[in-house]
Design a protein around this nucleic acid. Structure first.
Length: 511
RNA sequence: GCCGCGUUGGUCAAGAGGUUAAGACGCCUCCCUUUCACGGAGGAAUCACGGGUUCGAGUCCCGUACGUGGUACCA
């Protein structure tokens, strides 16, 4: 897909490094990434750190880590500069001013000297019932302290005296600003309800509005995808493009629908409240040590995370729900992204992960499960054995940590036995059976089939239904009512361990 | 308040004027399995509301309601 005067497709993800990367953010990256790959374009990471008061230590590195975990490495970024650097807006500070000055020269912007207090006063003074929050607009600006109301000599004087000022865009009156959005199609705004946004702040830094337009131009961005929360400020950006570079050079816009929580917009509070992660990876805010859980650490596979995110707001039109990144790249189209926000459903998210775990090989899962056990102080020496166990239990695991409960009894005797389920029906005959069975084990060649045969033959001999013995056997070995075939388990934990666990259980049952 | 955007089962969604309104998650029943899961077969459950347009509307138009975003020298 070609765009305007540029050849190659270039898209960007432009987060501000303020900490955490939530579901919606990752999905924005994803759609950018898929689009870039689909059209053999470039995927750029630009750090939008123009608000120096919100800088958070480690936040940029965290973004790289998340992108790497998800398998979406940018082609150009602060860490891997291309030909359009620098890639941090704070390092581009000097580039923005000339564009702001140009706008003033052309009559599309002006200096404003109002202090914060004066702005607050204005909002108070002009507040009415019909207008609960007055904006700095075409009507109000005539009453404020700016280069539109001041004499040019006064303006020069103020600037000479180093009076702090900002540069504001001068929104035209009575214009309908219309633009095409790849998802929403035609969107239009009345310029009379758009305010004169600050373009250049008193500290010389641009606001998002100026920076995004200038950088998208300078970086030759062809398609700009961002969250729908930006739709309301789109008219400012459109105007800026028109005044600065020409609408024909403007990237195509796509405003992505929001991802919602169980009641309304998704917040990190929802995570704590409903017990699901909202960030890609664990994040601890260095300012207050506030911890927010991540999908990675919760036990999600990155493939599953990507998969579930992609399906939240986009659909291929086919029945297929499980997609690899390659398949997504192949099938993705921005036109099929939905207009409306999607509510995040943790149950469905787990289903995706479960499917991915089931479909993953033991080789792939091994490092994750191995780490899990290591963190629980269980060292596994036999890699081949663990992989066998992984294949045996993976269909029972929705999240990686589930492997612990589902497999720990292969490595150590269960700490607690669910005796309550067998005690009511326990009797001497059963004790007798298990004692006899333990003694007979030496005669059994220790294969799953032989154990089962011996077990069933003895049950028949002693006139007990095998079914009444199998559950007790399971609880003795596993601790609870779960896990794969019980004779398979006996086979895998070996004869001595089997005898030992039966013996211990018998002691408990008869005490 | 004002402005923008949106609205198909509880959730994700297919659907682009004529369908018995797909499919998935979750829930329920049954089968498989004398465990749990996997797998298989069924089931309950939806076009926000009201007006138009049309022979015919989930699909087009208008209004209302509801949701959501913006309304910062934050992004």
């Amino acid at each position: 897909m070609m765009n305007n005067s540029f050849g190659k497709v270039r898209v960007r993800f432009a987060p501000s490094p303020t900490g955490g990367l939530h579901l919606g953010g990752v999905r924005t990256v994803l759609y950018n990434y898929l689009f870039a790959r689909k059209h053999s374009g470039d995927f750029i990471l630009r750090i939008e750190d123009t608000d120096q008061t919100r800088f958070v230590e480690g936040a940029e590195q965290y973004i790289y880590d998340c992108l790497e975990w998800c398998g979406m490495i940018p082609d150009e970024s602060p860490a891997k500069p291309g030909a359009f650097g620098p890639y941090r807006q704070s390092e581009r500070k000097e580039m923005y001013r000339e564009y702001a000055e140009q706008l003033i020269k052309d009559g599309h912007a002006y200096y404003a000297f109002d202090t914060t207090q004066q702005l607050e006063q204005m909002r108070l003074d002009f507040k009415t019932e019909e207008n609960s929050s007055p904006q700095y607009d075409s009507r109000i600006r005539k009453k404020m302290k700016n280069s539109l109301t001041l004499l040019s000599s006064e303006v020069e004087k103020l600037i000479e005296e180093k009076t702090p000022y900002v540069i504001r865009i001068k929104i035209p009156e009575n214009e309908i600003i219309t633009f095409h959005d790849m998802i929403h199609h035609e969107v239009s705004f009345d310029s009379n309800v758009v305010d004169d946004k600050v373009l250049l702040k008193a500290d010389g830094m641009p606001t998002y509005h100026l920076a995004v337009v200038v950088d998208d131009y300078l970086m030759k961005i062809t398609h700009a995808f961002r969250g729908e929360e930006w739709l309301s400020s789109a008219p400012v950006h459109i105007l800026l493009w028109k005044y600065l570079f020409g609408l024909n050079k403007m990237p195509q816009w796509a405003h992505l629908p929001l991802i919602l929580g169980p009641n309304g917009k998704l917040s990190k509070r929802d995570g704590a409240k409903f017990g699901f992660p909202v960030y890609a990876m664990n994040w601890t805010d260095p300012r207050n040590n506030e911890f927010t859980e991540g999908f990675k650490e919760k036990g999600f596979l990155p493939e599953a995370f990507i998969n579930l995110l992609a399906m939240l707001g986009w659909n291929s039109g086919k029945e297929q729900e499980l997609f690899s990144m390659e398949e997504f790249i192949n099938d993705f189209s921005i036109e099929r992204v939905h207009k409306s926000g999607a509510k995040f459903d943790y149950e469905k998210a787990k289903w995706f992960n479960h499917e991915w775990i089931k479909n993953s090989s033991a080789d792939y899962l091994f490092p994750l499960v191995n780490d899990l056990f290591k963190n629980k102080d269980i060292t596994i020496n036999d890699e081949v054995f663990l992989k066998k166990i992984i294949d045996l239990v993976k269909e029972r695991c929705a999240l990686i940590p589930d492997f612990y409960e589902q497999a720990v009894y292969f490595f150590q005797a269960p700490e607690k036995l669910d005796l309550d389920t067998i005690k009511p029906k326990w009797n001497e005959a059963k004790t007798n059976f298990f004692e006899t069975f333990s003694k007979k084990m030496d005669e059994i060649s220790w294969t799953t089939a032989d154990i089962e045969n011996a077990f069933k033959n003895l049950a028949a001999e002693m006139n007990i239904k095998p079914g009444e013995l199998q559950l007790p056997m399971r609880i003795m070995l596993v601790g609870g009512k779960f896990g794969p075939a019980v004779f398979e388990i006996a086979h895998l934990i070996e004869k001595e361990e089997t005898i030992l666990r039966i013996k211990n259980a018998l002691t408990l049952l008869n005490s």
